[in-house]
Design a binder for these strands. Structure first.
Lengths: 239, 239
DNA sequence: GGAGCATTCTGGTCTATACCAACTGCACGA
DNA sequence: TCGTGCAGTTGGTATAGACCAGAATGCTCC
């Protein structure tokens, strides 16, 4: 599957990429519309879109539905071993973090949750869904489960800040160990809708299990990130 | 960007996905051609392709250029903290690993490599490029740099097996610490060609720096994985 | 000045068609 | 038996046109 430069859409891609690299469009700025790019390049709109899809896959640009194509800001660096919460982490990198709580409800543990938390099926749990933004752009959606018995009344607190610090300061629960699973994925249906992206856009699925010093599960967290929003960095000793 | 089920390509997607889940097509098997699917669904070929792209992004299917669409095998699990080489690792999961050495040459360190290895610019280095396959499918391409002064004659050895074990058994160099950077990316140009995928397919970029017990850099490794070929799992204590 | 509404613009979906290049399989011949 | 070459099939690229729904804009009226 060679890429001879004879392919028109790669030519259009290179043209737009060069203009972005040259500073003609800055991070966050809008590109000309597809129809304008089409006229400028003398190609069909489908070809322009193919070029834009390439740049989107590379993380160079992103789209807002029916609004336009925009130049991507740089990604944040994520180190699971140094993670102390989204808000402080993002702020430390000079970006503006925001959190929106989409829902918070009490549920009962199903088989999977019961096993994860080592609790009986039917045990009360809190289910929190949040959307998190960087510089005004939604970058991840997360679904958190916390054992209600260990943090009674948790969902009555303001959860738009750091959940970790609420658990620590209000309930005295600290995190001693993290297990993180990562997997490239496609953002589909619910996640895509919540992040306001087109279904099928590549993303990163991140499943975090937090344990306290006694080895009990404190928090079980599924996150779906935009693929262009982060870099993961892990520094570990070989066992 | 809601997904009302009125969208035709999502309907086609669901139809194909259901047939795969139902066992009509097994991992590794070929799907009917786009033109056959088109006729069966009564839609345009572009719509069928849109549905196939969705499933590809989700990792459900993959394509061989001008050959057809195939059902994806399950991903391998990758734990950077337990990594003892591709070959043994993949075999332990019941899969068949292969390695092809694409090139191995001596180069001189540029600014970046000099800094990484704490060696002068111009120091001799070995540059090894390999392609690695699971069950006959190319899943990753890697580019490895090793300090030639620490492993003289390395590239005269057979490098289709475990590089780690060659470094250990022949040169007595062990790895004590790993630094791993991960980032969702697009496979473009060289990587895409080496993996025989279409440029722009999502992938995972993995940069590994291996240190010995003295903190010297042993090996610097850039890997590009197919996005559907692996799951990353990290288990770490919070500092 | 602000709320509400209509228009315009934008990307999203879909159809139909055409041609190309790489792969596949088969038939043929050495 | 083993290549070799041809023909058919497949996905890849590109065009042109059409319509839709949501976003953005600007206008009007209160």
């Amino acid at each position: 599957m060679q890429q001879p430069d004879s392919l028109q859409y790669l030519g259009v891609r290179d043209d737009i990429a060069a203009r972005i690299a040259g500073g003609a469009f800055k991070p966050g700025e809008r590109l000309p519309s597809e129809r304008q790019l089409q006229a400028g390049g003398g190609v069909a709109r489908g070809t322009v879109r193919e070029a834009l899809f390439q740049l989107e896959a590379e993380g160079v640009i992103y789209r807002k539905d029916r609004s336009g194509w925009y130049v991507s800001p740089p990604p944040v660096v994520y180190d699971p071993t140094r993670w102390e919460g989204f808000m402080s982490y993002v702020e430390a990198q000079g970006r503006r973090p925001e959190t929106e709580t989409l829902s918070k409800v009490e549920i009962v543990a199903d088989d999977m949750l019961a096993q994860i938390f080592s609790r009986p099926v039917g045990a009360p749990m809190y289910w929190i869904r949040r959307r998190r933004l960087i510089d005004g752009r939604a970058v991840l959606i997360e679904s958190i489960i916390v054992d209600a018995a260990r943090a009674p009344g948790l969902i009555d607190h303001d959860l738009n800040g750091s959940l970790t610090s609420v658990l620590k300061s209000v309930y005295g629960i600290g995190v001693a160990r993290n297990k993180v699973d990562m997997r490239p994925c496609a953002l589909t249906r619910d996640e895509a809708e919540a992040l306001r992206v087109k279904s099928g856009l590549p993303g990163l699925s991140l499943v975090r299990t937090c344990y306290d010093a006694q080895g009990h599960v404190v928090e079980f967290d599924r996150e779906y990130w935009r693929h262009d929003a982060l870099t993961v960095s892990v520094d570990i000793r070989v066992r």
